[in-house]
């Protein structure tokens, strides 16, 4: 109904200390007209979910390089559902092998963006799939 910007949380769960990719995505999405909440490095699943809840975001974008995606991502999806945030779109990016993607989708990740994905195509996916606000 309104044309309010879509609100996106960009979080970096896991223990690795590089958030360059996440920052580039956050800035890129800002330039695409999104309101992007950036939370920084080393987020636990609980921290991600509490930020998503307080900020009432439409999308949670998770950037992950540490290889722990098969434990962290399903856990975040489950905690989001438990917090009543089942209408929030969850996407992931970073280094995630193709063979893991089906299991992640099964767990609730709507899309997995590989290293070559452009910001424009991420933006397009979010516009098409984020919940509509009233």
């Amino acid at each position: 109904m309104t044309d309010r910007p879509i609100k996106v949380l960009i979080a970096k769960p896991g223990l690795d200390g590089h958030d360059r990719g996440a920052k580039v995505l956050a800035r890129g999405l800002r330039d695409e007209g999104f309101e992007v909440v950036y939370t920084g490095l080393r987020q636990t699943p609980e921290m991600v979910v509490s930020a998503a809840l307080q900020e009432d975001v439409d999308v949670v974008g998770l950037s992950i390089l540490s290889g722990a995606h098969m434990t962290l991502l399903p856990k975040i999806c489950r905690l989001l559902r438990e917090a009543g945030l089942d209408d929030v779109l969850v996407t992931a990016g970073g280094i995630i092998p193709d063979e893991d993607v089906p299991a992640l989708k099964e767990a609730g990740v709507a899309a997995v963006f590989g290293p070559g994905t452009t910001i424009a195509s991420v933006a397009e996916f979010l516009r098409a799939n984020a919940r509509s606000r009233d």
Binding site: G33, G40, M47
Partner: peptide, 22 residues
């Protein structure tokens, strides 16, 4: 601030407040 051109915004203040997120 919101960008006057795209309407987008980068909201980064939470980064400093993570200790309180739990």
């Amino acid at each position: 601030p919101s960008s006057p051109i795209t309407g987008g915004a980068l909201l980064g203040d939470r980064v400093r407040m993570q200790a309180h997120s739990a």
